[in-house]
Design a protein around this nucleic acid. Structure first.
Lengths: 137, 137
DNA sequence: TATTGTTATACTCTATAACTATA
DNA sequence: TATAGTTATAGAGTATAACAATA
């Protein structure tokens, strides 16, 4: 007889995050991206940002981001656009190809997660979404 | 005027999982571990497993796991124990030090997430937990 | 002085392909 | 033949420290 213990919500969230990361990794890979590259591209869909802000969003040191952006820029998925007002700064912008790839990745990740959420009804989804939003601020 | 769009539940879960990863990375680091090492140690708390099974649990190629285990074994957080029955195989076991570190990491991650979950009332917690359980199977 | 971003360096993580030893 | 695990290799991700240019 197996003793099945219901985990705490926090524990469940840790496991969820690993599951989501695996889905994210699988999808990224199918589109020829590393998970980190895909994460950066998806963040840029919301609009161009500077290196400092992007590094904060991705929870990375700025110096770590330099190489990451170098590689996706070499693949022409993003461009560094010099800031007109502040000559130290730049904005990282998606190219049309990068934008398409970001959306495709995002859609496919969402689709696979939705599959797993299949049985949930709309009122429950709404409630859960707002609960999650409260947690992540 | 900003147009605030409510994300889908799947999108909210992706964002939540990034938040959890950041907490996990912070805590791991404070305990002198990489997130990957911490993940492996936490998985081993459930009991010793072979390389093949551990690589499946961590969503890694076996060959990637070899180095990861090498490094935590050098730090005496785990040991490779040869399997008596199958001389090709081994079980990865936590040492007492590794076990303590795994628990500490787990507890601290849980504590920080619980802080963020503070805003959530019990009915929401229960519903969210069961939705999350459905996703992670 | 503070901030933006890069470079240099050293490790860690990861996959692919080829391999050894055992089943 | 199939499975458990390793090695060799190459590339990507990451942090720290030091730096250049600009504010």
């Amino acid at each position: 007889m197996t003793t099945e213990v219901t985990p705490s919500l926090a524990e469940a969230l840790v496991r969820l995050s690993h599951t989501v990361q695996h889905v994210f990794a699988d999808v990224s890979r199918e589109y020829g991206l590393t998970p980190q590259q895909a994460h950066a591209l998806c963040r840029l869909v919301a609009g161009p940002v500077g290196m400092t802000e992007l590094s904060r969003a991705l929870h990375l040191e700025k110096s770590s981001l330099t190489g990451l952006v170098d590689r996706i820029e070499q693949r022409e998925l993003v461009v560094r656009v010099r800031d007109g007002a502040d000559r130290r700064a730049c904005r990282i912008e998606l190219t049309p190809v990068g934008n398409r790839l970001a959306w495709q990745t995002h859609e496919e990740v969402t689709r696979r997660l939705d599959e797993k959420l299949g049985a949930l009804r709309e009122p429950d989804r709404k409630r859960l979404t707002s609960a999650v939003m409260r947690v992540i601020g």
